[in-house]
Design a protein around this nucleic acid. Structure first.
Length: 492
RNA sequence: GGUUCCUUCGUCUAAUGGUUAGGACAGGAGAUUCUCAGUCUCUAAAUAGGGGUUCGAUUCCCCUAGGAACUACCA
């Protein structure tokens, strides 16, 4: 049997970590088993639908390098793959169930439903949900409602006796008494659109989906879906419910835990390979020790057996670590092009880059590479090159273990050593050694000499290494800033 | 409330009857370095609790506790 799996998001929001994790697991499982990965857009909720969400879906998958074998844009033998374009199909199947007595029209108003719900809550009755008011309407009663112009919904007749079991690859058999299944869920809404349950079952069958891999939050509706397959007389696919992605507090990951939209991560400067690698490791492992996986690796070695049952907490710090690792593994040329948009957005360089700026960006890469967790870190790291905000406060120049007088001397003598050395082309190591001996002459630590110089040049106590900074700034500008720094100490 | 699922270091996980319970992130300590980072070394840290089964349980069974998800004309 050829594996056919699908990722079926609904475009009602930006693609988030949890969704992408589901997409990735489906995709890798398909690839690793030589099957097909299908993308299906479940846009049956026209109230929450947005074009932006749909575009975000496509761009996120593209960014990650995930290509679907069948789906929107690329097409396929079982299309269309956008549910809103399959309107008539669902209607047909829903009506078929009505004709067979397995579903029925319901004319209850939202107000009545709300009332029923309220009463159930107040009376603490054992089970909640629809009271099956319209389950056994006579033809006359129906005709009456129709005459009133009420648009009915179609509800599925859930058996009140017996129980339903479905098998989950990870969880084993899961059984639920039919009476515990939410009574008579809506299959077709009054606007003619299907609900998730109907559309999902119909499409998975029509698209020959063999394995349904979705988040564990769907486990409760598993039995209902099985009932639906049985009502249609269709074969039930295999289920594999994926562990949920949680926030620090053990609740479902959401905005309040931090960023969840992949787009946000992308904008902050996470690399697609880092996101892919880390997200796949949330709830899955190969052997407990292998950490780095490329997309190609996962397309080969992903297994269902490696999926964990328990929900997993999303660790932002570990993602940062992965991202840093991938940045450091990145070629300088690629990194230069990855960094450029951030410098442009900050207004530091032109778009497109001038020839001079291209050289500068390339030169920025090596010293910055070891220091970035996310690409956007390049901005604060290099801001001293593009905006000059001199430090006026003497205290900032004074290193720990030094004092104002020594700092003044260090800055003065150090600047001379530095500038004359650089101008005469002396090796940096030699200059560094001279500065170090200056420090011992003054009876201060080496940093006592370097810190005031660095502060003068980079306007910060935290900066790139001194010689890198000067190289990037240009000797003339560096000299100017050194003299300016010195003047602060000589004013009084 | 009801239903279902889950439970190894703080976090992600490995080990399925026999190990000093392993790795990684984060934490702590140290080394290197002009700051920051990076890199390297070391370190602390877990089988939720209670019963069984067994010569032996992280591993199998039961109970308890805790957590989560679902309970919409949303998916």
């Amino acid at each position: 049997m050829d594996v056919r799996v699908r990722y079926a998001p609904s475009p009602t929001g930006l693609q988030h970590i949890g969704g992408v994790r589901t997409a990735l697991f489906n995709y890798f499982f398909a690839k690793a088993s030589g099957g097909k990965f299908i993308l299906r857009v479940e846009d049956t909720d026209r109230e929450r639908y947005s074009d932006e969400s749909l575009e975000d879906l496509y761009s996120t998958l593209e960014w990650l390098g995930i290509k679907w074998d069948e789906g929107p844009v690329v097409g396929g033998p079982y299309g269309p793959y956008i549910q809103s374009e399959r309107f008539d199909i669902y209607k047909k199947y829903a009506e078929q169930l009505v004709a067979e007595g397995k579903a029925y029209y319901c004319y209850c108003s939202p107000e009545r439903l709300e009332e029923v719900r309220k009463q159930q809550v107040e009376s603490k009755s054992e089970y909640q949900g629809y009271d099956r008011h319209c389950a056994n309407l006579t033809e006359a009663e129906r005709a009456e409602y129709e005459a009133q112009g009420i648009k009915p919904v179609i509800r599925f007749r859930v058996p009140t006796e017996g129980k339903t079991t479905f098998h989950d690859i990870l969880m084993g058999d899961i059984t639920r008494r039919n009476r515990d299944i939410s009574p008579d869920p809506i299959l077709l809404k009054s606007d003619g659109f299907p609900t998730y349950h109907l559309a999902n079952v119909v499409d998975d069958h029509l698209m020959h989906i063999t394995h349904i891999m979705r988040a564990q939050e769907w486990i409760p509706s598993g039995p209902l879906h099985v009932l639906l397959y049985q009502a249609f007389g269709w074969e039930v696919p295999q289920y594999c419910h994926l562990p949920m992605v949680m926030g620090k507090d053990g609740q479902k990951l959401s905005k309040r835990h931090g960023s969840t939209a992949v787009r946000d991560f992308r904008e902050k400067g996470y690399l697609p390979e880092a996101i892919m690698n880390y997200v796949t490791l949330v709830g899955w492992s190969l052997d407990g020790s292998t950490e780095f996986f490329s997309k190609e690796d996962l397309e080969k070695c992903f297994t269902l057996q490696g999926i964990h049952k328990a929900p997993a907490v999303f660790d932002y710090k570990k993602l940062d670590w992965f991202n840093g690792q991938y940045i450091r593994a990145c070629g300088d040329e690629r990194l230069a092009s990855l960094i450029t948009p951030y410098l442009q957005k900050a207004g530091y360089v032109h778009d497109p880059l001038t020839e001079e700026e291209k050289k500068l960006v390339s030169a920025i890469v090596p010293p910055v590479k070891e220091r970035m967790k996310v690409l956007s870190d390049v901005v604060p790291l290099t801001s001293f090159l593009f905006e000059d905000k001199p430090v006026e406060d003497k205290a900032v120049y004074i290193a720990k273990g030094s004092d104002e007088e020594s700092t003044h001397k260090a800055l003065k003598a150090g600047s001379e050593i530095l500038l004359s050395g650089l101008k005469s082309g002396e090796p940096e190591a030699d200059i560094e050694a001279k500065l170090a001996s200056l420090a011992s002459e003054l009876g201060i630590k080496v940093n006592g000499v370097f810190q005031p110089i660095r502060v003068a040049i980079t306007n910060s106590t935290v900066s790139l290494p001194l010689f890198d900074s000067i190289r990037l700034l240009g000797l003339d500008e560096a000299e100017k800033r050194l003299m300016r720094g010195l003047s602060i100490f000589e004013e009084n």
